[in-house]
Design a protein around this nucleic acid. Sequence first.
DNA 1: CTCTTGATGGTATGTTTGTACCATAAAAGA
DNA 2: TCTTTTATGGTACAAACATACCATCAAGAG
Lengths: 210, 210
Amino acid sequence: MPKLVDHEERRAHIIDALLRAAARDGLHAVTMRSVAVEAGVSVRLVQYYFDTKEQLLLATLERLAVRMGERVRDRVRAAGSPTAPRDIVEAVLLEAVPTDEESRTFHLVYTAYAVLSVTDPALAGQPFLKAPGEMEDFLIAQLAAAQRAGDADPHLDARQEAVLLLAVSAGLGLSVLLNQRTADDATAVLRHHLARLFPGGVKSLCTPLG
Amino acid sequence: MPKLVDHEERRAHIIDALLRAAARDGLHAVTMRSVAVEAGVSVRLVQYYFDTKEQLLLATLERLAVRMGERVRDRVRAAGSPTAPRDIVEAVLLEAVPTDEESRTFHLVYTAYAVLSVTDPALAGQPFLKAPGEMEDFLIAQLAAAQRAGDADPHLDARQEAVLLLAVSAGLGLSVLLNQRTADDATAVLRHHLARLFPGGVKSLCTPLG
DNA sequence: CTCTTGATGGTATGTTTGTACCATAAAAGA
DNA sequence: TCTTTTATGGTACAAACATACCATCAAGAG
């Protein structure tokens, strides 16, 4: 047998090249050739490790989903321990706002995949679509915990607030991606809304009408 | 001279065909041929009325922006007159939630263009990017009017609330587009948040901390 | 009646794409 | 030493694409 190469490392290298190329030229402009050039390998090698372009794209999407999950968990962990629900929620939602270049790349390509998944049947049933559903349940639980701890108004509808937060986070992230807003601006707006949802220890500061 | 055809009508017909094809197969899959087939004309005709593919895509984007502006104005008008700021804001923001098939098509293709504009220099400086900026100013004015009328808390930061509303609307609309949520669900969440912002005639029901 | 001109169809062309095929170096096992 | 297998390069090929070119039909102008 020859050199015996670590396949997973090679695949990761090629996938990273694809992500760079997609972030620079757009996902639609990604070709086998451009990925090969970006990765500094021959087209034949890309074929060798991913056989077909469709599988390369699928593998990239999978890695994207895994990495974003990791990033979210890292943020929660970085928020310290024990962490108040409010800080956990903030950490999770702020991950959707692209700040560093890696984050920007991830969200841009991820969004391109999401739009693609509406019309592409091969992408429609992909696991990355489960993320928002899981995230919603997670946020509901955190909100409920905050309510029990007296950090959030107990009259709030946790589910509706969770859906709202998810929408805010996605909408702000998208606007930053489209260069309509700075990341700092988006962060400030998100924090502003969180401050309203979590007024602190004071109970029932805000009495809803219904 | 021969038949003498209404060019604008022909162009609109071809653009509509492109929109249908893009909503069905994805904007990336749109070709001169597919547009021609969808419109029921020859490829040569598409060339004749739009010369190049890039110009066809640009014309489609322009029409999209115009039509969406019209739809928003129609909604505001349909809300009756005189209209309370709260109802105007609701009408404007709900337009971002795709309900009927036309609306879904518009938002899907529009989103595809938006993602494309990040990497495509020809699309980056297009007028459709101005819309969010204008919309933000419009919302700020409406919120300020509501505050003066006593329909909204005068302590609210109108600008931050406007940015937040825009993000909510975009985020909810996107989630409906991606089939993560129903349009009814998104509408309910948006209304729920509006009810918090516009508690009605009661002043200072909700006292912010800062 | 001719001639010009707008509207249309068909086809050719050069380029790019994904992929299949052929070849080879090299290292491990026989 | 001689396979056998893994990793790699180069190239060939059919399909699809945007676009340029050539041809034609028909209706109003002269």
